[in-house]
């Protein structure tokens, strides 16, 4: 019967009950991993140079070997000079995974200039050359309204709903920004004066009453509207922040309020893009479900970004309400 061969074939196949091995790992793609964020508010700039790795098992957190790349020569070039970064090490804040010190490359003393373009070149004997270019955002123009200045030095003499406005203009090379308003004070703890700062929220869960429950602070935002900004706070939050300090947190301590600082941090394109990707685009409307890898390094993985920090400082009078 013609069906017999087919039945026989099927029965023969049935003897191949087998377990085909599977490993999702492919050939290891060894890459140089470079991260750097140059900032205008510090006189030392760091670059980390590591290797990509493959854990022997599947949980990457079980990989605890130091994967810093040692055979590298790191330089930073601007339009006129070339600087060589030195091999150094820092103590890790978190030693739960890596026990060895953090190995990196440092340039000190060195402050990046606003508006300047830098090229980072990392040469490795074993991994070749990786490079990246970064444009440090130019200087931001910060200002405050006339009324804002008065409110800041005498908040209790003004209504809570009054606005504290900071009309500003971002550099055209800034792709993102972050605004902060902080109040700095000295507090006597025992016999020692300690300086502390607290950031003012831009809103809270109960904005109408200016409650400080569930505060909402400004987030990194894209540079839209051709760089024109109008960062606005409400005096009610300033009043309640001070009240919270003098009546609750440090009710029994002596305090001296020193200054209020409006800070504007500008992010270059690479840093802003990277930040957006790892924080799900900060896009309240996104329906996207995956997270891509962002890399802006030629010959490697990672990115070199930059940020600038500009600020307006408002010194508080010695008779500032709350000083005692």
């Amino acid at each position: 019967m013609a069906a017999k061969p087919l039945v026989i074939i099927l029965l023969l196949l049935s003897t191949f009950g087998c377990n085909q091995p599977f490993d999702p790992k492919g050939p290891v793609d060894q890459q140089m991993v470079v991260f750097a964020v140059f900032s205008t508010d510090r006189d030392v700039q760091y670059v980390t140079v590591d290797m990509s790795y493959m854990p022997s098992g599947f949980d990457p957190l079980t990989y605890t070997s130091d994967n810093a790349l040692n055979d590298v020569f790191v330089t930073l070039k601007d339009s006129r000079n070339m600087y060589q970064l030195r091999d150094t090490a820092l103590a890790r804040l978190d030693t739960s995974r890596y026990k060895s010190p953090l190995r990196l490359y440092a340039l000190y003393p060195f402050t990046v200039r606003q508006g300047q373009t830098y090229q980072l070149v990392v040469q490795s004997r074993s991994m070749g050359v990786a490079s990246a270019t970064v444009v440090v955002p130019g200087k931001a123009l910060l200002d405050s309204t006339y009324s804002a200045r008065y409110i800041l030095i005498e908040p209790f003499s003004h209504f809570p709903e009054e606005k504290i406005r900071f009309p500003s203009r971002l550099s055209s090379s800034a792709k993102g920004y972050l605004a902060r308003l902080t109040i700095t004070y000295d507090v006597l703890k025992g016999t020692e004066w300690v300086q502390e700062s607290v950031e003012l929220p831009i809103a809270t869960a109960d904005t109408a009453a200016y409650s400080l429950e569930h505060p909402i602070y400004p987030q990194i935002a894209p540079n839209l509207s051709a760089g024109v900004l109008d960062v606005t706070y409400r005096n009610g939050f300033l009043i309640n922040t001070i009240k919270n300090l003098i009546l609750a947190k440090y009710a029994d301590n002596r305090m001296v309020f020193k200054w209020i600082v409006f800070t504007l941090i500008q992010l270059d394109q690479n840093l802003f893009n990277y930040y957006s990707v790892v924080h799900d685009y900060r896009d309240p409307r996104t329906v996207r479900l995956d997270r891509p890898m962002y890399s802006e390094i030629n010959g490697g993985i990672g990115f070199v970004g930059a940020c600038t920090v500009d600020s307006l400082v408002f010194l508080l009078p010695t008779n500032f309400s709350g000083n005692r």
């Binding site: 492919g26 990509s52 990989y63 930040y275 990672g302």
Partner: peptide
Amino acid sequence: TVGYFDQPTFTNTLP
């Protein structure tokens, strides 16, 4: 899977 690298998240460290 061709490897891993450790990436910063900048959760609270800007700037």
